[in-house]
Design a protein around this nucleic acid. Structure first.
Lengths: 200, 200
DNA sequence: CTACATATGTTGTCACTGACAACTTCGAGG
DNA sequence: CCTCGAAGTTGTCAGTGACAACATATGTAG
């Protein structure tokens, strides 16, 4: 009857389980205040087990953050792979995918960008975060080649796009874009203004 | 020789002292992981004294966040009060003031927008936060009246501005706009693109 | 097949934290 | 002058992150 007999001494894939459990708690509690011990409890392991896979809580959070960038990149590439009538529509779709990712994973998104310490720079300049950035870059480059976009330094345009889209996401997550206060399509307006500023 | 004799039993202005001390630590540690007890220690009071002024740590952080919005509003109004050759320059100045505030108070800025719990919405819809937003709104309204800006729903334009500027700030704080990688004036480019999208 | 080295889990422990309760001090208003 | 409440203090508690020491599984060399 001992549970000990059911569950083998070694979990088998604790690392993954810990991450998944923590991801769940991130969502539930809308923040990363959850305790490592509670994660362990839910995973059904002892309170010190997580330390065999993550040097400290920060390391776990960092891994979760990177995982977030992986998912973001996937969502962006998926959005961009579909056929489009125009380059403008493609950019629109990309932007929507980005904001959609943020609004449907608010806590994760905040974690990705709000990382407490100065670790932010490390995470964001990591390969996995840059990959997400890369998707947008490629689309912009294509736009310039096709002559749809003004030929300005590509990095500047990319910065503009990312900044606008990131800002929109944050505002949306913070509940600062309620249709009642800001109009039914404040976001569309913002994206339109952006494109009008970028296009030839 | 007892310090107790110097310092009166009642501090006199503990609330303010606590806030200022905490603000200092926010800056030093680039985050709000500091402990309430350490704040009390530095303020020279007992570990429980802060609870006479703030129901819990979150309340202190919320107050600090609001204080941040006050300062932001002040900086924006100051920037906007100077004389300008054109409306475009005024908007530029405003945007620079905003980003400047964020980059020179990174931890505070993160606190203002990264507030852990869902408290974000409460803080941002508070009077003091909206006041900061209001400065930008007024400038945009003036721009429309003067015929410089396209006559679109003002809230949409404001959203666009805020999103762009907020995004730029976050990227800058995160160290994602190093001139080496993104060009020497990625920010200028972004602001220019924004204005070109808003202007008539 | 055996025996050990290593990765993975567990128990035990420590200093510290946020939060509360009970007690003390001080100053303002009847 | 006295009392009452605001502001501080000491004491305490459960819970936390982190580490150390110990236990168990796994796989690999002889």
């Amino acid at each position: 009857m001992q549970e000990t007999s059911d569950r083998p001494y070694h979990h088998g894939d604790l690392r993954r389980t810990i991450i998944e459990t923590a991801m769940g708690m991130l969502d539930e509690e809308q923040g990363w205040q959850f305790t490592l011990r509670e994660v362990a409890r839910r995973a059904g392991v002892s309170h010190a087990a997580p330390y065999k896979h993550f040097s400290d809580k920060g390391a776990l959070l960092a891994e979760m953050s990177m995982l977030g960038f992986d998912r973001l990149r996937e969502k962006l590439t998926a959005a961009e792979r579909r056929p489009f009538a125009s380059h403008r529509e493609e950019l629109f779709a990309l932007a929507h995918a980005y904001v959609g990712f943020g609004t449907s994973n608010p806590a994760l998104y905040r974690l990705m960008f709000g990382a407490d310490a100065g670790k932010a720079a490390d995470i964001h300049s990591g390969e996995r975060a840059l990959a997400a950035f890369g998707v947008m870059l490629e689309t912009l480059e294509r736009g310039q080649k096709e002559g749809v976009l003004r030929k300005r330094p590509i990095q500047g345009q990319a910065t503009t796009c990312w900044a606008l889209v990131h800002g929109l996401t944050m505002l949306a997550i913070g509940g600062l874009l309620p249709p009642a206060k800001v109009g039914p399509d404040a976001m569309e307006a913002a994206l339109a203004a952006l494109l009008e500023g970028l296009e030839e």
